[in-house]
Design a protein around this nucleic acid. Structure first.
Lengths: 204, 204
DNA sequence: GCACGATATATCGATTCGATATATCGTGTG
DNA sequence: CACACGATATATCGAATCGATATATCGTGC
């Protein structure tokens, strides 16, 4: 799961560990508060496997006009850089995704196994990389999951439970209902867009 | 966290591992899908620490007439059990909580550290063991937490994000809002009951 | 009688967490 | 200008947890 997250973020642009962690918790919320104790080992795993590779930050600027590696020390660094020496700040290690990495990313993203809340949130944030049909299937899969979950949650508690636990169960059911309505909305939007979007051209 | 769960369930009555797992996922939902690979080691830890101890199931029945050890074979068993023999099946190891265990339970339940969603759900399901004041404080703590979370979620995304990620963020915010309203309701109920100072009957 | 699914305990390797260590950089303060 | 301090950044350690798997037993249905 962490590997999917890392690959997805690196698919956008090269980044270093610290930034990967920040991005994750920033866009995915507290649900994805990854620890360094799992992130750095994961980076090493991926590097050993050839899915990502280290990239020299100082060199990269050649081709494209200053790739925003993401705040060398914040955006402020840009200003300082001009009136100071080259930072050569060599403590950071940025990584770039490889072709092999992109293949694994696509595979993990399409993989139907293990779709809990965390996995769904992560995949959704990367589902723009899926083809329309696959994306719709992904959403429908989640919908089916939630529908089934809701059914079990709606079943009356057979055992005697205290009112706090009961309140918890009821709240869970309404939350799932809420999630389900949301997914339905996403699916509707997706269908509408795919219908409007003919096999040529981008409709307004 | 797992230890709190185990102790809390054993505080009600002696149970064996398999049943502990079932109870947890049953009452706490899929959020608490504990694996055996963590449950059994936890039981051994607690037993070594003297917080729980093994109890002979066959002997225990003395005082109370048939302690409902909890679905010897699930709910279906209830029906079967009546028209079939008494089980007496000796492969299970039931545990009972000790005084030392109760002390740890109280400590863990009151402990303010690490209150994520999982922890909150678990503690809520046991909060009947707290004194009214402590229970109210517990709920208020959660409320403060959610309020703060909502504030960060409402902040507009500074970065450019695709529409799926944006939808995700918006949904998270409304979900948190939903949770917050629910907590407010719980708090209101709690206050009302504590003021009325009535042991709460089903009087309507 | 006997295959089968549910019950039940246990262990293994891999993954993840939480805490901690160690630097560097930029900033604010006296 | 020294200097403490907080943010940035990488790394590692032990403990906790997961997911898969192994191995029994029990009750049921055929």
């Amino acid at each position: 799961m962490l590997e999917l997250a890392v690959l997805g973020l690196l698919a956008e642009q090269p980044r270093h560990g610290y930034e990967l962690k920040k991005r994750l918790s920033e866009t995915l919320g507290p649900l994805w508060g990854i620890s360094f104790g799992s992130l750095y080992p994961a980076l090493r795993r991926l590097e050993r496997g050839g899915e990502i590779e280290e990239v020299d930050e100082t060199a990269g600027a050649a081709g494209a006009g200053f790739v925003p590696t993401g705040s060398l020390t914040g955006d402020l660094a840009a200003a300082r850089q001009r009136r100071r020496v080259r930072p050569t700040r060599r403590t950071r290690k940025a990584y770039r995704i490889t072709d092999r990495g992109r293949a694994l990313f696509a595979e993990l993203l399409t993989d139907e196994a293990g779709d809990d809340d965390r996995a769904f949130a992560l995949k959704l944030s990367f589902c723009r990389y899926l083809e329309p049909a696959a994306r719709l299937a992904f959403l429908e899969r989640r919908r089916a999951q939630l529908t089934q979950l809701l059914a079990t949650e709606r079943k009356p508690a057979t055992r005697a439970i205290d009112r706090y636990t009961r309140a918890l169960q009821e709240h869970r059911a309404t939350s799932t209902q809420h999630d389900l309505e949301w997914i339905d909305e996403l699916i509707a939007q997706e269908r509408a867009e795919q219908l409007g979007d003919r096999p040529e051209g981008v409709s307004a």
